[in-house]
């Protein structure tokens, strides 16, 4: 450990840090709070540029972004635009997968008014609650987050007092006090599922961090701002019984040089109460993955 004030030397890493000492000495005038002030200024600046959840934009804006970039990416965006009409960006704050999932799911319910789906997911959410309790989580640590998610779920169904419009859903998704709590709800769900099936997930987790599922959940799932990997997506999809399609926009292409956009469907594995029929359901959540970031995609 060390605090990052400048030349910090710790016995174990003496040889390394003492080299840094001379280099960092000039930096000693920069105090942590100055650096942090600057950091939060940068964050605030970013926040203005991209809210937690952005507006729906035509896919053309994505093409414009790569206008002078990689020809492979330009070509892939062309292929993408044959099937997809729009993109909704999310802030790159490490919560983008969960935030994208949150908005895409609630928006789907708002637009489809699919009450059967709401009843179905509630059964799985209740199962997740039991899972967390059986894993030894104190109920008071997660109950507020569960209640808040269920409240949002009710509110996107029309015909009750708390019903909200699409515009209000966008507002709520941008309101930190609601948005972050729903993200945290998904983090609890993901962590519970990973631990419940830790034997299954252990090899995947070890490939990522060389630790146990327990350690992985503590360091990479439960803290806000920790980015999501395949493992998180699989676990969330399994736990809630919601299929998710991810399209990959990267520079890869096959040997023949032909361009196609790879996608992967995360199909909920059997095991949770309502997952058995999930194989038959076409994913209604589609996300675009660019290395390090997820946004929401809208099919034509």
């Amino acid at each position: 450990m060390q605090n990052h004030d400048g030349d910090v030397v710790e016995s174990k890493t003496e040889s390394i840090t003492s080299i840094q000492t001379s280099e960092i000495d000039d930096w000693a005038n920069f105090r942590d709070d100055d650096i942090m002030k600057q950091q939060s200024a940068i964050q605030a600046e970013e926040a203005v540029k991209i809210p937690f959840v952005g507006d729906k934009e035509p896919l053309l804006t994505l093409a414009a972004e790569y206008q002078s970039g990689s020809p492979i990416l330009q070509e892939k965006i062309k292929v993408l635009s044959e099937q997809y009409a729009a993109i909704r960006r999310t802030r790159g704050d490490g919560n983008c997968f969960f935030r994208s999932f949150m908005f895409a799911y609630l928006e789907h319910i708002l637009e489809s008014q699919d009450r059967a789906e709401v009843d179905r997911i509630k059964v799985n959410v209740e199962q997740c609650r039991k899972t967390l309790l059986s894993l030894g989580y104190a109920e008071f640590t997660f109950e507020d987050f569960f209640a808040l998610f269920l409240e949002q779920l009710e509110s996107v169904l029309s015909g009750n007092e708390a019903s909200i419009s699409h515009e209000e859903l966008v507002q709520r998704s941008r309101d930190q006090s609601i948005s972050d709590c729903v993200v945290m709800f998904f983090r609890f769900i993901t962590s519970g599922e990973l631990k419940k099936r830790s034997e299954f997930y252990e090899p995947f987790v070890q490939g990522l961090t060389n630790g146990t599922v327990e350690q992985f959940c503590k360091s990479s799932v439960e803290p806000m701002g920790e980015e999501s990997d395949h493992v998180h997506i699989t676990a969330l999809s399994d736990a809630l019984g919601v299929p998710i399609r991810i399209l990959y926009l990267d520079r890869s292409c096959d040997d023949k040089g032909s361009i196609s956009v790879n996608h992967h469907d995360f199909t909920p594995a059997p095991g949770n109460p309502t997952n058995d029929n999930a194989n038959a359901v076409k994913p209604f959540i589609t996300l675009l993955y660019r290395p390090g970031h997820y946004d929401i995609l809208y099919p034509k």
Partner: peptide
């Protein structure tokens, strides 16, 4: 900690530890 004096001096203005950029590279102790 090896950097105790420097760190404590920099905190004289009443700064919270939450305003420190910590580096954690040893979880054995």
């Amino acid at each position: 900690p090896a950097d105790n004096d420097r760190y404590v001096k920099n905190c004289k203005n009443g700064r919270s530890p939450k305003e420190t950029r910590w580096w954690f590279h040893d979880d054995k102790v």
